[in-house]
Amino acid sequence: MTTQIKNVEKIFGSFRALQQINLDINEGEFVAILGPSGCGKTTLLRLLAGFDSPTSGEVVMKNQVVADEMSFLPPEKRNIGMVFQSFALWPHMNVRDHIRFPLKHHQFLSEDLKKGMDFRVDEVLKMVDMYHLGERMPSELSGGQKQRVALARAIAPKPALLLMDEPLSSLDAELRMSMRKEIQQLHHLTGASIVYVTHDQSEALAMADKIVVMNKGIIEQVGTPKEIYSSPTSPFVASFVGKANLIQGKWEGTEFYPFHQHAIKWDGTSVTSELRGENIFPARPEQLKISFREGGLKGVITNVQYQGKEIHYTVTIEDEQWVIHQDLDAMFSIGEEVYIHLKESQTRAVKKQLHFV
C-alpha cells in the first residue's frame, strides 16, 4: 500500500509541530523517521495512525484520503498495525491471546486468515521465536520477549502499513542490537510497509531503506542511509547523523581552506553544494587524523575517552572543540599540542609557496 503525506501541517495553539510535510511511503518500503525529541516525528506517526488529524494538508492511503483538516478515519478503519514504545500488553491475556486478538477484530483481515486463525497464531509465534511461550502471561516475560509479543500482535493480521514508535528505546543495548535483526527479518518475511520512528541514528542507518531526518517540525533531508550519512545537505543533518565537526572556512570550487588558512587545502569533492554554500566542511570523527606532524591545523588535546577498539579525542582548535576517533596505533594525552589532518583518502593537502617581493 502506497501512502502519501501532502502539505501536512499540525498546530497546537501557538506551536507549529509540523510544517509543510511532503512524503511518499512506497509499498514494502522501510522508512525511518529520525530526529531529536520534539522534532515532530511522533506527531507525524499519530497522523498516519489515525490518532489525530492535520491542521492542513492530507494523508492518502491506497489513493483514498484518510485525513485532512475536515475529517479523518480512525485507526480501526485503516489497514495498519502499531507497535508502541511501552509494549502496551494486556496483563490478563497470555501470549497466544495477544496474537489472536487482532485476528478477531481487524477489519481488513483476509478470508484465509479468518478461517485459519489458529494456524496464523502458530505461524507468527514461530516467526518471533515465542512458540514455546504461548501460554505465558506478560508478567512472566522479559523485556525482549514482551517486545516480540508486541511485534507479533502487530503483524498477525498482515497489515499493509506497520507503524513503530521507538519500539526498542526501553531495552538495553544488547537487546536492541538483537531486536534490530528480528525487525529486519520480519520486514522481509511480511513485505509490509514500515514507518519506524527513532531518535537513534544507528537504528535508522542499520534498518531503513529510506531515512527522513526531521528537525523543528520540518523535513531536513530524505534519502537512503548512505546518502544521509555521506552526503548531508544541511548542517543539522551533518551533525545529527554523521556527528560531523562543522568546520568553517572558504570554498574555491571543490577546494576548501579550513579557517581561511591558505597553507592548507582540502579536497571537498564529496561535500554537497548546500554545505559549500554555507562555507562549511562536514568532517566526521573518523575522517580526521591526529599527529605530531606539522602541516595540519594546530590544536590541543582536551579530553580522551578509551573505547576499546579506538579512542575518542576532543581537540580544541581555534576556540572550537572537535571530536576525532583515532585507532590505537598512536595515543595522545590531555594537554599535548597536535596537528589535525584530513585523512589522505579524503584530501589533497597542498602547501602554497610563499613569494616575497
Rank of each mutant, 00 (worst) to 15 (best):
G253L: 13
F259W: 09
Q261I: 05
T254E: 11
K265W: 07
D267P: 10
H260V: 05
V213W: 14
S230W: 14
E252L: 07
F240A: 00
I247G: 02
V222W: 09
F236Y: 09
S234Y: 00
M214W: 11
K226R: 14
F236E: 09
F259H: 05
G249K: 11
A244F: 10
A238K: 00
I228N: 02
I264Y: 02
G253H: 01
G223S: 05
G253C: 04
E227H: 12
V213G: 15
Q248Y: 09
F259S: 06
T224K: 01
H262R: 13
I228H: 11
L246Y: 04
G242Y: 00
V241M: 02
A263M: 07
K265P: 04
I264H: 09
Q248L: 03
N245S: 10
K243H: 09
T254C: 12
T254L: 07
N215W: 02
N245L: 05
Q221R: 12
E220H: 05
A263N: 13
S239E: 03
K226E: 13
F256I: 00
I218G: 15
H260F: 04
Y257P: 00
W266K: 05
K250N: 12
K250M: 01
V241Q: 04
I219R: 06
I264M: 06
E255H: 04
F236K: 08
S234N: 04
I218E: 10
I228L: 06
T233W: 02
D267E: 09
T233C: 15
N245Y: 09
N245Q: 01
A238V: 06
A238I: 04
Q261S: 02
Q221K: 08
P225S: 13
S231M: 14
F236W: 03
G223P: 03
G217L: 12
K265V: 11
N245W: 12
